[in-house]
Structure formats: structure tokens, C-alpha cells
Design a protein around this nucleic acid. Structure first.
Length: 873
RNA sequence: GCCGGGAUGGCGAAAUCGGUAGACGCAGCGGAUUCAAAAUCCGCCGCCGCAAGGUGUGAGGGUUCGAGUCCCUCUCCCGGCACCA
């Protein structure tokens, strides 16, 4: 056995062993509970980044842990291979997206293998391959025929210079990122998935997801946003508008209807467009509203602007006229594209009304200040519920009764009704881009939109293509779009839009169960593996990806393809990986970001950071704080270099130890050194055991029965206490403290007295076998090597998970803390089973208690068994 | 703007049901070993204080014998906002 720890050879040997035994290939097994452990698959962007390494390390720890717990574990891997970066790389480097993507997959796969993840590679899939996306197209045609996919107009960011639709990410301050042109909103036909048909089910089922973080469920709940409210109709007629009809709005605050002083409509609302025809000023305002992108965050933070349309509608209760304003904060895509404005009781309406001097009519009073002056000038909107005032016959009513009364009257007049509304909108999946799954539709002048028949699937995406960044490449390829109508046979045009890449990631977890199936999307094996028992990925996917996957699983369930409704039983949302940033100010205030590896930090004699210098020139750099690892801040740490220098186990150990999985992880080079140091100590102890201590082992082990010397019994108690803690922490996925426990076990083992060689060897043997099994999921290579070299039985992958021994934990005497008036003053030693009265007496008589009670009598004594005694005087 | 989350030593963190704040590690300081260095080992290490002691979990208030943990108000930072993945 090597006396020095050499990760490169240790890791190569372990990986070779797993490879030759096909250790991670799994099939369905009715005799074992299954555990489907899945990490979100990576986008093949080039090289692994530290976020990937963290994600897959966490997943691997869970997979290997459950395997040792006796589960039939599936951990697959694949590639979320369609997407924009491939097109951007193509424009920059003149490489076809397919070639770039496949090269990246090759490289990253090698990196994943080097990290030693327990992956069943036989199930590998890439979403850009026809054998994957053909089933997506197949499902599309089914859902289309079912009506779950439909076509309508949708709003996109239009770059008028590049004549291209841009993603929100490509719109910076309202301008195109390449052209710099002011972006316009444009309406184009798009396909939509009717996710709203499942809104209630997606919302209600959240309650059953006990394995999901509350925060994620809450975000999804708010995203779906079911609200009970009232649809209110404001009639208009020839005298006010020029035609007659009703303006519909939805509100959750129908109780404030008598406080409505105007209605606001979106710039694209039909009423606005009608009014703009004879009003050039209004027309130019509408035109101005068309500028800029469609991202909600931008729309919601921009300056609130509006203009009167000159039109009036009739208040459905009072019959008074209300002015119609167009406002840029009212969005056509949300609800009815119109809102009733109650400035007194809505903060946004209040700000708008104050800016444009519109009337503010108070109709709700707090129930707490019944005598307050109802005519006092308003500083702010009162948005709470309360008692109605200034509302005629409704005065005095409180929120639910007021809504009931007003909606009943509206209903009687035919001017409104109670209804449920959702914030959730249908999912637009059309993308005017090349590198995605082609939408399997054909447009025929005579037959309209026709789904591509099964026998013509897949619609293969041509891979040798030139990407320029102007327009859509497929729309310039007649060999792709020229086709004949499947219905009538006449010449027709193939759809050239591709699907949102979220579609591929909405079902890949089901495909892993049967990735080799060439005749169907999924088969019966999916009902063995589904649902995913543990899903691991970034919190940034808390809403969209997870909601789409929940929807897709239901859509596939209703097609009879899978039995489950929920795809992911347990969800772990991992935190970001962040690192220090450094920069120098260049001319023009631009920051030149400097990689932390090129910087030397300076500390004072207490270890506090006082400055930093560039190693190359010795001149100071600015410390920019801690940020998410990224190319733009140049603060990434390359996993490859790390693995080459320290090995995969050290990288994995540091990542697991530095923070709990769901928290942000701060990179630290010296922390990596620390992890490496620990593994060297583990190796060195294993080496000492194998070459030295082991020889002293008695023929038959007697730990369970023999009386150990007290110092060794204490070592053993420490080991089993740490093990108990580690098992508890494993259960709640707090792996950083599992590592702490392993470190404490090693500390105890190293300090154990060796004068009784046989007893020491027994304690060391038990301790080492516990330590290696605790480390097996985290640092599997070094654990495997030592397990083998120390001649522990069997393959560590299958070793039984260790459980603490009750007899080893037993303690006769315990120490209790003594507090006086809640302040820590001392401690007393008592028998572990001492009765409360005896503890109380001992505590009162203790030196610390006598001193700090200062002769005063105790007013109260609180005894917390096993913890403390608090004496109140 | 809206929704969600976070804040504990110089740093990453721990504290299981409201019960010893800072386990474990990093950095730092002192020592041993060494011709020297690396590596390793031993010790110290929240802040103020010579000590006794006081004080301390983003800020302010409250409940309690006792609050990092529960309640109220506020500040700052992070994630998402439907075409980044």
C-alpha cells in the first residue's frame, strides 16, 4: 500500500473498478425499493462550471447514500442541447450549432466521468437528436388535435434593424444587443400550450408535495395566482364612444367599485385604437408605448404614463360617466387589458391619479379609526379591507358582504358576475430561431394548419446551416420549408418556428426510464421509475421549469402514457456558487475584471483583509465583493484545473463541506487546501491501520461485550455520537455537518491511546469502517481504496450503512449548566438518571449558584433535563 | 414594481422542540521539528478588559425564568418575473 495519498492513481483505479463491474447500470428490480435520483441536466455550453460540479456532487452523494441503504438507484445524465448560446457561438465562430454542441457534449462528458459520478451512462440522451425530439413532435401533434395546443397572436421583441425576434435577455435598456436599435413590440402568430386548463390541479396538488421546499410551493402558488373576484362591465354607447358595447374589467376589490373615478386601458386595447384614429396626439402616445421590450420587470418599473382617450364609459351602479384613460402600466396580455381605477384604495392608481390630477374618492375606512375625518387630504392609498363609506346603500358593509351585495346587483343588471381568475397565462412555445425542435405543422392555403402525420415524423432539423443573426435560418431554406399538404397533397409551407427549449426539459426525466425505445415516447418501464424520488437543481428554476414539467407530466398522464401526476417527489434547490471579484478601473469608467487566481490578497496580523494586488505587476487592484461565478465578472474557478491539481474527491469534499446544499457556496482556495489536508490524514490513518494496528487485532472481536479502558470508551462514545449526528444530518440533507462529524471521528481516532494495542486496534477498526462508509458517498474514490486496502469485506458500494450502537453511547454521569437569572454561571455533574429534586439541590448548592445568588432566596428554579438548571432570584 | 429567500467571529458555517452561541473547518498568532523551507504535530483564537467581569447572532421594539430561534416595525443583499438556461 502506498504511504502517500496520490489522488490521480487512487481515482483512476476506483473508476476503472466501477467501469469494469458496470456498477451503475440498473434495470427494474421488483425486490428492492427504487430510488430515482436526478440532477437537472446541463446545457452543453463548453466546459463544466462550478455550479454543475456542485449540482452533480449533491446528486451523487444522495445516489450513493441510498444505494448503501439498499435502494435500486437510478442516476442518469443527458444534455439539454438546444438553445440560443449555440446560435451565438455559430455567429461568432462560424461553426454550425450542431457541431459546436456535440463537441461540447464530448468534452463535458469526459469531465463528468473524471469526477466519478455514479451515473448509468447507458441511458444518456441529447435533446437535439432526432431520436429524442421526434417524440416531442409526436406528442405535439396529439395535443394539437386534442385542442391542448392552439394558435393565436403573441407579443415579441422585434429588432427592426436585424429584422429578428429577440429574447428578453437580448434586449438591453430597450435596445437590441447587437444592432442597438430601439426594440418594438410586434404581434405574430404563435402556438400555445393550454397550461391554464390544468391551473386548478397544478395549484391544488402543491399541498400534497411534502418533499418540496415551502418557498418553492409558495412561489408556484403565487405564480398561478388564483383569485376570486368580480368581472364588471362598464357600458358605453354611441354618444360616448361611437359604437356600443361594454368594457370588461376584473377586480378582486369589487367592494371599492363606488370609489372608481376612471378606467384605464392598455395601449393595444380596441377602444384605444378606435380613439386614436381621430386623435394624433393619442396615436403618437400609442406608438410610444410600442417601443421597448416585453419583459414584465421592465414594464413594471418604468415610469407610469397615461393620456385621456376622450371616451367615457358608464359606471354600472351609479350611472355616472367615467373617463377612459390609456395607461402604459395596463397590459393587453393580462386579464381584459383594462382595469377600473380606485385611487383611494390602490397604490398604483393613487400614484397615477395624483400625477394626472384625477379625482380620489374614499369609500373604505379602517375599522380601527371609526371617527377619522373622511374628507382629510390623502397622503397614501388605503389598500386594506374595511368598512364601506360614501357608497350609498352599501355603507357600513365589510369586505366579503360588500362584494356579495355589489356583485349580486351587477348580476341582476347583467353588468357583471363573480368569477375566478388566474395570473397564469398559456405557454407560448413558438420561437423564431434555428437551433430548436421544429414545430411539426404544415400550412396549406386550402386546408389551413395541418399537423405532420406520424409516418412523416420526425421533422428533422437540418444540421449544416449558416447562422447570421438576421432573420430565421429555416425560413431561408426552401429545401426545409417546401413540402406538400398531408391532407390534399398540394404544395404547402412547413412551419419554420422551433419550440421553446423548456419543452424538451419538461419530459426528459420520463424518457430516461426507456431512452432506448425506438418505437414509442415512453413504455411500461416509466411506471417503474417515475416519479423521480429526488430532484436536484438550482433555485432559479423554482417556477418555470418545474411548473412546465408538472404540467407536461399531467398532459402525458391524460394521454395514458404515465401513471403519475407529479414528476418530482422530493426537491432540493441548490444555492449558487460565488467567488470574490477584483477589478481595475479602465478609461471611461469601464471595469476590467481580474481573475482571483491572478490576485494576491493582503491581511493584517488578525487575518483581516486589507488589500489586494495583481501578482503580475505588484500594483493594487480594487476588491469588488462576492458575486456569482461568471464569465462577465471573470471570477470563475475552472473545475478541470482543480481536479487535475487535487483530484475529484477533494473537489467534491470541499463543495459538500463549505455550505449546506441549499445555501450559497463561497469559493475559497484555502478551503480546498483544507479538504485536501483532511483526505491526506484519512489516508495516513488508513495506512497506519493496514500496515500496523491491524496486526494487533484479536482473533475474535469483543467490543460489544468487553469493558474498554475509559479513554478508549470515550473515543468510541465520540465516534458513535458523531455517527448518530451524521445520520440525522443525512436525513435532512445537511451534508456539510456530515463532513464535520467525519472530521471529528478522525480527530478522535488519531488521539486514541495506543497502550492497549488489541483494544485500540478494535476501536480503530470499527471507527475506520464507520468513517469510510460515511465518506463513501462524498469522497467515493479514497473511501473505496482504503476500504479495499484495509481488507474490509465486500464492495464499499454495497456496504451496509452504519448505525450507532446504544451501548457505545451510554454515559453514567452528565454535566448540567447552572444559570442564575438566565446567565451562565457554572456547571454541576450529576448521574444521568438523577431525579429533578436531586438536580435542583445539587445546583442550588453549587459554588457558582451560591456566589451569584448573593444570599437571596430562589424565587423559581427551572430544570431542563439533560441540559440546564436556571435559578431565578 | 410584484413574488420568494437571506443576514451569526477576520472568513465559510453549527446550534434537532425556546435551553451552554460560535461545533467543524479556513485564515491568523505562538511553539516543536528542520541547516532552511515545504509538509507535519502541539497550543491560542468573538469583542472590550490586567483581571473580576461586561458584552455579543443586520437595526429598533415586544413575549418569556430563558430568544440566533416566536411576534411587530425597518434596513441592506440575493433569486424569479413567462424568449438565458
Amino acid at each position: 500500500m502506498q504511504d502517500k495519498y496520490t489522488p490521480a492513481t487512487v481515482e483512476a483505479a476506483a473508476q476503472q473498478h466501477w467501469e469494469s463491474t458496470q456498477a451503475f447500470r440498473v434495470t427494474e428490480d421488483a425486490n428492492k425499493p427504487k430510488y430515482y435520483c436526478l440532477s437537472m441536466f446541463p446545457y452543453p455550453s463548453g466546459k463544466l462550471h462550478m455550479g454543475h460540479v456542485r449540482n452533480y456532487t449533491i446528486g451523487d452523494v444522495l445516489a450513493r447514500y441510498h444505494r448503501m441503504r439498499g435502494y435500486n438507484v437510478l442516476q442518469p445524465m443527458g444534455w439539454d442541447a438546444f438553445g440560443m448560446p449555440a446560435e451565438n457561438a455559430a455567429i461568432q465562430n462560424n461553426v454550425p450549432p450542431a457541431k459546436w454542441t456535440y463537441a461540447n457534449i464530448d468534452y463535458m462528458k469526459g469531465q463528468l466521468k473524471r469526477l466519478g459520478f455514479a451515473i448509468d451512462w447507458s441511458r444518456e440522451l441529447a435533446t437535439c437528436k432526432p431520436d429524442y425530439y421526434r417524440w416531442e413532435q409526436w406528442l405535439f401533434t396529439r395535443l394539437y388535435k386534442k385542442g391542448l395546443i392552439y394558435k393565436r397572436l403573441g407579443t415579441v421583441n422585434w429588432d427592426p434593424v436585424d429584422e429578428t425576434v429577440l429574447a428578453n435577455e437580448q434586449v438591453i435598456d430597450g435596445k437590441g444587443w447587437r444592432s442597438g436599435a430601439v426594440i418594438e413590440k410586434r404581434e405574430i402568430p404563435m402556438y400555445y400550450m393550454k397550461i391554464t386548463a390544468y391551473a386548478d390541479e397544478l395549484l391544488d396538488a402543491l399541498d400534497g408535495l411534502s418533499g418540496w421546499p415551502e418557498q418553492v410551493k409558495l412561489m408556484q402558488k403565487n405564480w398561478i395566482g388564483r383569485s376570486e373576484g368580480v368581472e364588471i362591465h362598464f357600458p358605453y354607447d354611441l354618444s360616448t364612444v361611437g359604437s356600443s358595447g361594454v368594457l370588461k374589467v376584473f377586480t378582486t376589490r369589487a367592494d371599492t367599485l363606488l370609489g372608481a373615478t376612471y378606467v384605464a386601458v392598455a395601449a393595444e386595447h380596441p377602444l384605444t385604437l378606435q380613439a386614436a384614429k381621430n386623435n394624433p396626439e393619442l396615436a403618437s402616445f400609442v406608438e410610444e408605448c410600442r417601443h421597448g421590450g416585453v419583459a414584465e420587470a421592465d414594464l413594471a418599473t418604468m415610469e407610469k404614463k397615461g393620456m385621456p382617450t376622450g371616451l367615457r364609459v358608464v359606471h354600472p351602479i351609479t350611472g355616472e360617466y367615467l373617463p377612459v384613460w390609456v395607461a402604459n402600466y395596463v397590459l393587453m396580455g393580462y386579464g381584459e387589458g383594462a382595469v377600473m381605477a380606485v385611487p383611494a384604495h390602490d397604490e398604483r392608481d393613487f400614484a397615477f391619479a395624483t400625477k394626472y390630477r384625477l379625482p380620489i374618492q374614499m369609500v373604505v375606512r379602517s375599522t380601527r379609526d371609526a371617527y377619522a375625518d373622511t374628507s382629510a387630504p390623502w397622503q397614501d392609498a388605503y389598500a386594506e379591507h374595511g368598512r364601506l363609506v360614501n357608497s350609498g346603500k352599501y355603507d357600513g358593509l365589510h369586505f366579503p358582504d360588500a362584494v356579495d351585495a355589489i356583485s349580486a346587483d351587477l348580476q341582476a343588471k347583467g353588468l357583471g358576475m363573480k368569477r375566478t381568475q388566474y395570473r397564469l397565462r398559456d405557454w407560448g412555445i413558438s420561437r423564431q430561431r434555428y437551433w430548436g425542435c421544429p414545430i411539426p405543422m404544415i400550412h396549406c392555403d386550402d386546408c389551413g394548419d395541418v399537423a405532420v402525420p406520424d409516418e412523416q415524423l420526425p421533422v428533422v432539423l437540418p444540421e449544416n446551416v449558416e447562422v447570421t443573426g438576421r432573420g430565421s435560418p429555416l425560413a431561408k431554406m426552401p429545401e426545409f420549408y417546401q413540402c406538400s399538404c398531408p391532407s390534399c397533397g398540394k404544395p404547402a409551407r412547413r412551419e419554420t418556428d422551433t419550440m421553446d427549449t423548456f419543452v424538451e426539459s419538461s419530459w426528459y426525466f420520463l424518457r430516461y426510464a426507456c431512452a432506448d425505445n425506438a418505437t414509442g415516447m415512453v413504455d411500461s418501464r416509466v411506471n417503474y421509475w417515475a416519479p423521480v424520488d429526488q430532484y436536484i437543481g438550482g433555485i432559479e428554476h423554482a417556477i418555470l421549469h418545474l411548473l412546465y414539467s408538472r404540467f407536461f407530466t399531467r398532459a402525458m398522464r391524460d394521454e395514458g402514457m404515465v401513471n403519475v401526476s407529479e414528476p418530482f417527489t422530493n426537491l432540493l434547490t441548490q444555492g449558487m456558487v460565488v467567488a470574490d471579484t477584483y477589478y481595475r478601473e479602465a478609461a471611461g469608467g469601464k471595469k476590467d475584471w481580474i481573475n482571483p487566481a491572478d490576485v494576491q490578497v493582503e491581511r493584517d496580523d488578525k487575518g483581516r483583509l486589507v488589500g489586494a494586488k495583481l501578482i503580475a505587476d505588484g500594483q493594487p487592484v480594487v476588491i469588488g465583493g462576492t458575486e456569482k461565478m461568471s464569465k462577465s465578472k471573470n471570477n470563475g474557478v475552472d473545475p478541470q484545473a482543480l481536479v487535475e491539481r487535487y483530484g475529484a474527491d477533494t473537489a467534491r469534499l470541499f463543495i459538500i463541506f463549505a455550505a449546506p446544499p441549499d445555501q450559497q457556496l463561497e469559493w475559497s482556495d484555502s478551503g480546498v487546501e483544507g479538504a485536501y489536508r483532511f483526505l491526506r490524514r484519512v489516508w495516513s490513518f488508513g495506512h497506519a491501520f493496514a500496515t500496523e494496528y491491524k496486526a494487533a487485532l484479536p482473533a475474535s472481536r469483543s467490543l460489544a461485550s468487553a469493558k474498554l479502558p475509559e479513554s478508549l470508551a470515550a473515543v468510541r462514545r465520540e465516534i458513535h455520537t458523531c455517527l448518530k449526528q451524521a445520520n440525522y444530518d443525512f436525513g435532512k440533507h445537511q451534508f456539510n455537518t456530515v463532513v464535520s462529524a467525519a472530521m471529528k471521528i478522525l480527530n478522535a481516532l488519531e488521539k486514541a491511546a495506543r497502550d492497549n494495542a488489541a483494544a485500540h486496534a478494535e476501536v480503530a477498526e470499527e471507527g475506520l469502517s464507520i468513517l469510510l462508509r460515511l465518506l463513501a458517498p462524498i469522497t467515493p474514490h479514497v473511501a473505496h481504496a482504503l476500504w479495499t486496502q484495509c481488507s474490509f469485506a465486500g464492495d464499499l458500494l454495497q456496504a451496509a450503512w452504519p448505525e450507532p450502537s446504544e451501548s457505545a453511547l451510554k454515559q453514567d454521569e452528565i454535566e448540567l449548566v447552572v444559570q442564575v437569572n438566565g446567565k451562565l454561571r457554572g456547571s454541576v455533574k450529576v448521574a444521568a438518571d438523577a431525579p429533578t429534586a436531586q438536580i435542583e439541590a445539587l445546583a442550588l448548592a453549587s459554588e457558582a449558584a451560591v456566589k451569584f445568588m448573593e444570599g437571596k432566596p430562589p424565587r423559581k428554579v427551572v430544570v431542563v433535563p439533560g441540559r440546564l438548571v436556571n435559578i431565578v432570584v
